[in-house]
Design a protein around this nucleic acid. Structure first.
Lengths: 206, 206
DNA sequence: AGCCTGAATGATTCGTTGATTGTTCAGGAA
DNA sequence: TTCCTGAACAATCAACGAATCATTCAGGCT
């Protein structure tokens, strides 16, 4: 049982090295198997297929990111607006840097997105849960007025879609994207029907 | 002079028929020329290239749409929120129905978007001008508080990106997209820092 | 001269073929 | 029996010659 897991880890590590060195497409199952001193067929006792290995690697990495998001969303002592801002900026910067620094990450992302459309939905749903937690956590503060938290989280995700996998849709630089996200965020938080122009500064919770 | 324009129109009409029957890729310049009883070479006296014919067709169609958008944005007697809503919903429905009803439109859209990235930017900029006009038009009403109209228009476009060419990014149905746009719109107009929950009804201007 | 043609050009696409590779499974080792 | 191997299979991919087609331009027609 514990051994099974060791072997899985071994496969993942081998695949991780191959994928990041040569890319997903140029890595063969036979090579990964050889790196683990086993036959290609044996890999299939641990993973349904090649894509599942990639998905597993992506998920491991993503879980770490999720932990960061959770901490930002639930950071005590920060205003609701700041938490939301931190959350969305962390999201933008992570994917931007990931796709920027590692061209292989781009390949992996597109392959998974194309072959497993549900995966992106799962990620969205997971992050939505964190947003809902954020809203619950600041509910008493009186800073935000939200009746349907789930729906509101969904709408925020809709409105910030451009910043989720920026490189897939635009060729904008990170500073430019950051400025745009800042603006969209201000819109989301303050809306158009506010008093003159209140810069969305820090302290605001009761 | 006037004849030149007649020939251009003739070419456009012929190309329009071919493109919508057989698609952009499967239409040859020789065929369009034959439909106009002229040689392939002669087409180049009226258009720089094949793609420019397609662009011209797209633009003709788009100009009509722009006129509708202008009327919605500047409709007298409607609240600012309603105008903005009409504007964005018209945008969503037009592209959705266009891509839905005519599979060839999808091909044309992707070819132009891919080969002429500036074209999409030009469309965005054009619509942004209309949004700015809308904001100027309702400025006295006191319904919206906007200091930088240009930037605000840009941010609204960012936040509603998902609804601009919906089929390119998601597989959601129109009703689902409409519900999402409704939600995003409410967020944009009212923000998160509002009193309890004011349904974004009609009348609001002074 | 001013317009237009249609064959020449070269870039791109297409279809075919042969090789590669993800996946399976009959059988052998422990 | 349980675990693993590696050859076999089918699907996919790469290579490459052939064909197509957008574009050009030397020349003919008016």
């Amino acid at each position: 049982m514990a051994e099974k897991n060791d072997v899985r880890c071994q496969i993942i590590e081998a695949a991780k090295k191959r994928f990041s060195h040569f890319g997903y497409a140029k890595t063969t199952m036979a090579e990964v198997a050889a790196d683990c001193s086993m036959s290609p067929g044996n890999l299939y006792r641990f993973f349904p297929g090649k894509l599942d290995i990639a998905e597993c690697i992506a998920t491991q990495d993503y879980e770490k990111h999720l932990e960061v998001l959770r901490q930002l969303a639930l950071a005590p002592g920060r205003s609701a607006a700041d938490r939301l801002s931190d959350f969305l900026f962390a999201e933008l910067r992570r994917t931007y840097h990931k796709l920027e620094s590692d061209p292989r990450a781009y390949e992996m992302a597109t392959v998974i997105a194309h072959e497993r459309p549900e995966y992106a939905n799962w990620m969205l749903a997971t992050e939505r849960k964190i947003l809902v937690q954020l809203f619950q956590d600041v509910e008493q503060g009186g800073e935000f007025f939200i009746d349907d938290k789930e729906t509101t989280a969904e709408m925020i995700q809709s409105a910030t879609m451009k910043f989720r996998y920026p490189q897939l849709w635009t060729r904008l630089t990170l500073p430019r994207l950051e400025r745009e996200l800042e603006g969209v965020l201000q819109l989301i938080v303050n809306g158009l029907r506010r008093e003159k122009t209140v810069r969305p500064a820090s302290g605001a919770a009761a």
